[in-house]
């Protein structure tokens, strides 16, 4: 067993073990830290930066930083909230997100976070980037308008030899995520569904599955993102 230690989040003391990341420690204590690119069980990518917290005056990503004894973590200063909102606003202005017509609406983490953080008009100009919709695959459709380049599909969706179906192409603001045309033909139903599941937004869609659960009854239609974690925390506090 790893050693039990105490940490402070927003000046409040919590207990955890030293083998945890800040995110894990926060979650088990019912403190919500938003995440987008983080995917448990895969190597962390730390690309979205939305889980940024302050530790000793330094911004660090909660999903990848291990806790330490007595660590003082800020998770809800105005500065941090502003950064998180900015990250969301950039995502909305970099891609082309029309939530009302998106199959993922209500199950989309980006949309859910925008509600949670009350994003209104973004401070950044819309970039109106031209993005394509790749419908060449038999099982899935990839709508690049919605891709937030979180790399979750790249990291998680591999065949039995460990070969990746998705990968990054190019770099900088030209960076895109592409599906391997050839390997894509071998995509099984399970992997296709897993890809859709792994994608936090509506960029990967399994054909004919988009509206299985009607809009209005989906995960974030029913409760705000993070509510489950916070409820756990309340229950724990009651005990």
């Amino acid at each position: 067993m790893a050693d039990r230690i105490s940490i402070y989040i927003d000046k409040k003391e919590y207990f955890t073990t030293e083998d945890k990341t800040i995110l894990e420690a926060a979650q088990e204590n019912g403190v919500y830290i938003p995440t987008l690119c983080h995917l448990p069980e895969t190597e962390s990518s730390t690309s979205c930066r939305i889980c940024t917290v302050m530790v000793n005056g330094r911004p660090l990503t909660a999903c990848s930083t291990p806790v330490g004894e007595g660590m003082e973590i800020d998770n809800s200063t105005t500065q941090i909230t502003e950064w998180r909102k900015s990250v969301l606003e950039i995502m909305f202005t970099e891609g082309n997100h029309f939530c009302p017509s998106c199959e993922k609406s209500g199950n989309c983490r980006l949309q859910a976070l925008a509600y949670r953080y009350q994003i209104m008009a973004p401070q950044f100009p819309y970039q109106f980037n031209e993005r394509e919709i790749d419908a060449t695959n038999d099982k899935i459709i990839q709508d690049h308008n919605r891709c937030i380049i979180c790399k979750r599909c790249v990291r998680a969706i591999k065949d039995e030899h460990g070969r990746s179906f998705f990968a990054f192409i190019d770099r900088g603001h030209k960076l895109r995520v592409r599906l391997d045309r050839k390997l894509g033909k071998e995509l099984t139903d399970e992997l296709a569904e897993a890809a859709m599941e792994v994608c936090p937004v509506g960029s990967i869609l399994v054909r004919e599955k988009g509206f299985e659960t009607p809009i209005g009854q989906r995960k974030y239609d029913l409760e705000r993102i993070g509510a489950d974690i916070e409820q756990n925390g309340q229950m724990k506090n009651h005990e």
């Binding site: 730390t46 690309s47 950039i90 970099e94 380049i149 190019d170 770099r171 900088g172 603001h173 960076l175």
Partner: peptide, 21 residues
């Protein structure tokens, strides 16, 4: 910097370009 960013991080991929604009 716009050309040399690896593009992974959301701010680094976008902000230099917005600043240049």
């Amino acid at each position: 910097f716009i050309n040399e960013s690896c593009g992974s991080c959301v701010p680094c991929r976008n902000i230099p370009k917005l600043l240049k604009e």
